[in-house]
């Protein structure tokens, strides 16, 4: 009984949790979780930290990297924002994940952290780069959009350029109908 550890629904841990047994988390943990047995993150659990164990089963929410020596399984209802690292990874339908996934053998545990650090570094670097890029394209996109609108719109306006072809068939259709009707009448 004492070997099966549980952090209950109404329990909040701020700090590190580590141990060599199995752990079932139903409550909240803000800190690191390192277990040498099986770690189950229940439906009502909310974990704001990196998680590491031999096997990890996630049914709840994790904001942090999840790494395991054997396997990581995200069950239906799992919400993970962070990287997954384990030799075997399962993501069931209904699980949500935002992060990198790595099944590289020997890359778990120690490997996941540098990767995560690299990922955060990558994420940190591109952001300022992306912003000006994103900022530049926006007006470009707008102008493109306007250009597209003006290009598409000119069916009526820009008779001098490409637009005429669509104008003609549309007129043809109407004209044909009108002519037919007129002709019929």
């Amino acid at each position: 009984m004492a070997n099966v550890s549980t952090i209950g629904r109404g329990t909040v841990v701020r700090g590190s949790v580590r141990g060599d047994g199995d752990l079932d988390i139903q409550g909240r943990v803000e800190g690191s979780v390192v277990v040498e047995g099986e770690l189950t993150i229940g439906e009502s659990a909310l974990i704001k930290s990196d998680v590491s164990a031999r096997r990890v089963v996630v049914r709840g929410a994790v904001a942090g990297n999840v790494s395991a020596d054997e396997s990581v399984v995200l069950e239906s209802g799992a919400r993970v924002v962070g990287d997954l690292g384990a030799p075997q990874i399962g993501i069931r339908p209904g699980a949500l994940l935002r992060g990198n996934v790595s099944t590289q053998v020997g890359g778990q545990g120690a490997g996941a952290r540098p990767r995560a650090a690299a990922a955060t570094a990558r994420a940190a670097r591109p952001k300022p780069v992306e912003r000006p890029v994103a900022a530049a394209p926006k007006p470009a996109a707008k102008t493109d959009g306007l250009a597209a609108k003006t290009a598409n719109g000119p069916r009526v306006e820009g008779n001098a350029r490409k637009p005429p072809p669509p104008v003609v068939p549309s007129l043809k259709r109407g004209a044909k109908g009108a002519l037919k009707r007129k002709g019929a009448r």
């Binding site: 009984m1 004492a2 070997n3 329990t11 909040v12 841990v13 590190s16 580590r18 047994g21 800190g31």
Partner: peptide, 30 residues
């Protein structure tokens, strides 16, 4: 069985807050 069990071999360093029964068989610091 208690809702929260900090089993033998489990160490928690930090603050544990709970509104349900807690059983400690491991280590708690903080």
């Amino acid at each position: 069985m208690a809702a929260t069990v900090i089993g033998h071999g489990i160490t928690i360093e930090g603050e544990v807050t709970s509104d349900e029964e807690v059983l400690v068989a491991g280590t708690v610091r903080g």
